[in-house]
Design a protein around this nucleic acid. Structure first.
Lengths: 148, 148
DNA sequence: ACCATTTTGACAACTTGTTGTCAATCAACC
DNA sequence: GGTTGATTGACAACAAGTTGTCAAAATGGT
């Protein structure tokens, strides 16, 4: 079976997404190395910065397994960056929220991340950024619908 | 510091890239689960399907560390899917090539992967796919240039 | 109110990456 | 030809995710 033109283009894109993912993780870690927070940790913290959320909810939000997020949350708990709140809708599934220290730490990271994002984004057209975001999300939708 | 419009768009894109990356890996593994080869294994095998390459070269190609690729290659070696060839340019750094069995296995995977890519790509505009590829690569270029 | 199904947390084993370090090899230059 | 610096393979420790399993808790239909 031969590749269609679209199929070949999709495969090229897919490999490039893997590479970009790697570079983004590396950069994210580098940005906040001195603050003692890796990319995945502040991503979890970012998810609960507005409202406290349960672990499975965060996982669905980020496209990860609940076990993986649970592990991360347990570590953040040990480090005193998040707290558990009672969940009115579920006795044993607590809501995770930022502690005062967690909030302070996240806000410093947010400053750094925002400055960095602004700087990178300056070199690119805002419409390209938005269009690419929409297309990537659409691609993910297609993939997720096919697998179900 | 507030986000610029571009900065916010970039951050949104970045989070979506993480999610797409996850879905792609999951799908890749699901596709070839019965063939006993995970995504990362056939990615490495794909890299050497044209010409034998050294481990560090594969790593640079894929945007990974040489140690990570080395680990993968050692596993593929144990399973008899790749072989080491003498490298005329380096006494101890062998070239990695596909074994007969590896080539056979990869060609089956390629068929499956191609059919899948064609099917997914069918739902999307080929120009969008190409444009997105170019933009993502450009983004990665920017990121890699900033960090050096 | 009961029962079947789903959701959840906890734990273990595993995969795929990372960094750091060491010694061996290679390349370049004086 | 010797020294110096970069590249390489091997190994260890670690990070971040996965799957699978179990029991407890929640949910929904009859």
């Amino acid at each position: 079976m031969n590749n269609t033109e679209s199929g070949a283009a999709f495969t090229e894109l897919l490999l490039e997404v893997f590479r970009l993912n790697g570079v983004l993780l590396t950069e994210g870690d580098r940005l906040t190395a001195d603050l003692g927070l890796t990319s995945s940790r502040w991503q979890v913290m970012g998810a609960i910065s507005e409202h406290p959320l349960s672990v499975p909810y965060i996982a669905r939000e980020m496209g990860l397994t609940r076990q993986g997020v649970q592990k991360m949350v347990n570590i953040l708990m040990k480090e005193g960056l998040v707290e558990f709140e009672d969940n009115p809708h579920h006795k044993s599934s607590k809501l995770v929220s930022l502690s005062a220290e967690g909030r302070k730490r996240l806000s410093r990271i947010d400053d750094i991340q925002r400055a960095w994002a602004n700087q990178i984004a300056r070199d690119h057209d805002v419409d390209d950024l938005k269009r690419t975001f929409r297309f990537i999300r659409q691609l993910r939708d297609t993939l997720e619908r096919k697998q179900s």
